[in-house]
Design a protein around this nucleic acid. Sequence first.
DNA 1: AATGTAGCAATCATTTTGATTCTTTCTTCA
DNA 2: TGAAGAAAGAATCAAAATGATTGCTACATT
Lengths: 317, 317
Amino acid sequence: MFAEPATKLDNYAYAQRERLAYIDFRLQYQGSIARGELMEHFGTAVASGTRDFTLYRELAPENLVLRHENKRYYRTGHFKPLFPHDSQTALNTLAHGFGDGVTSPREVSGFCEDTPDLIAPPRDTLATLSRAISQGQAVKLIYISLSSGGSQRVIVPHSIVNNGQRWHVRGYCRKHSQFRDFVCTRITDIRIDHTEIAPAELQAADTEWNQQLTLELVPHPGHDHPKAIALDFNMDRADTSSQTTQPVRRVAIRAARACYLLRHWNVDCSSDHRLPAYEYHLWLRNHETLKQCSNAVLAPGYATERRGSPMNTKVSR
Amino acid sequence: MFAEPATKLDNYAYAQRERLAYIDFRLQYQGSIARGELMEHFGTAVASGTRDFTLYRELAPENLVLRHENKRYYRTGHFKPLFPHDSQTALNTLAHGFGDGVTSPREVSGFCEDTPDLIAPPRDTLATLSRAISQGQAVKLIYISLSSGGSQRVIVPHSIVNNGQRWHVRGYCRKHSQFRDFVCTRITDIRIDHTEIAPAELQAADTEWNQQLTLELVPHPGHDHPKAIALDFNMDRADTSSQTTQPVRRVAIRAARACYLLRHWNVDCSSDHRLPAYEYHLWLRNHETLKQCSNAVLAPGYATERRGSPMNTKVSR
DNA sequence: AATGTAGCAATCATTTTGATTCTTTCTTCA
DNA sequence: TGAAGAAAGAATCAAAATGATTGCTACATT
């Protein structure tokens, strides 16, 4: 898959690998790179820039060629990436810039835009939560709930999760004596609470968090072009668990997170796939697995058929 | 805001800044860091590790303290970050690891989980699109559309965008002679097409892309706790454009992207905010601005009142 | 044809990093 | 209780990486 065995690259120092990776990335996703651009990004001198390209050329001579007309290196047709850039990471780099986003100002590609971020949690809230989790501490905070307004609570957080729309913190709420999700932006006045943590408040005791479900997503039976949906979600035809060859995408996910995913992807979770195929491209074939989710009210089409009362159930949208 | 002026840090080399930033980040978001952890992350030796902590201590003596009991540095109460970690970047780092994700394997925090990624575009598709855009080239591809199945097209792409759920590529479609969005995962057999590009096919000619709208998002009038919504979306009370003091969040966004955002955030776009407040926390106050969007059918509650026919409009969901 | 730019290569100076040794502080365990 | 061990700091010298400089080449611009 890669032009050189990974062990070869391990011989080089972190900083050297980083510069090689930068060349590699630019060639693969931009098609060309000039020595001056490498130098500018890392703040290095010309001698270093030349050496870096020389080294890259030794490692992957087929990957690039210098065009003297404009003095830029161009990717060749035989390009084999030296580093594995998975597409999620690549998109993040294109949209937000190369590097860690801290060390130096990130230069963005200009043609790649991520989702506008309407509700990043405040820095201090995030930092305090993150430290509390790392150090096994409780936090005291004011939480503005949609249903009951603001109130003070003590929470033992154990995870920070993105539900597709918002960042939540999950933890044990001492006010309600159960594990819950809290929307990070609804937290104010947070601080570390130096009290003893009981075993029942730890992540290990959060059964819905620790239980893994496997969701079986299939193209919505009401849809005209199931193949397009199957391609979209990279579904597998090798469905060994049944006699059919219906394409299916199995997704392993924590029970506590399953319903957020189903809602984010507009998955019809009714037993008889009765929701409109136009809006719902997917159907949850094994909808009975949601019995294990206390927030199943979030799953489209699931709660209504059981006559649940959404308004009385506490879930963090 | 920061303990030292940024100019001070500019004196240090990229690699040195990176190690300082790592210490800074770990203190802020984990609360502690050991010398060995720094060494392991960057693959450096003990002497270097000691020097890095010595330097960090010189730059920000109040930020950390060594506890001899367990030989770890701990963040103090007077901590002032040396580097600006915005919360979006911090969350990305916590969920996916420190660094660029390429140079060395990323060590993830273990307690922060991003949205499960169901449909990352294939690497080659993304790389080809990205290069074509960078170099101003057209691409020839097979596109599997939901309505008409697969067909070959030539496209002049100019941007890659995340609509909240999927990654799209936007560009001029020669088959339909207009700018359109294409879902990346529905693309197969892509390759560079070496044909001339006309001015009308360039990004500059994409009026919907280049036109900026300002969306005025307000808490849904039917909601019981508008203050909670206002906090959630960090709304501003200083609404100088009207006599009221109703909190509002103004979002500047390209016309071509506006409706995706409105759908992603479940914004009621009807003129009389008639959609249920339980599902729709926000209302688009200046809904008339959507007249400028050809894909307004995506905006919840907007198209229906104009008796549009969603099924006949080509938009990439 | 002259000039400028940005690439390569080689050399030597400078800076950064590694290896080694010795010390300190606190934990662990016999 | 006291000795061993682990992981930090500090200092020194060696090794490696980087910077500065010079001379060269290919091409674009004028």
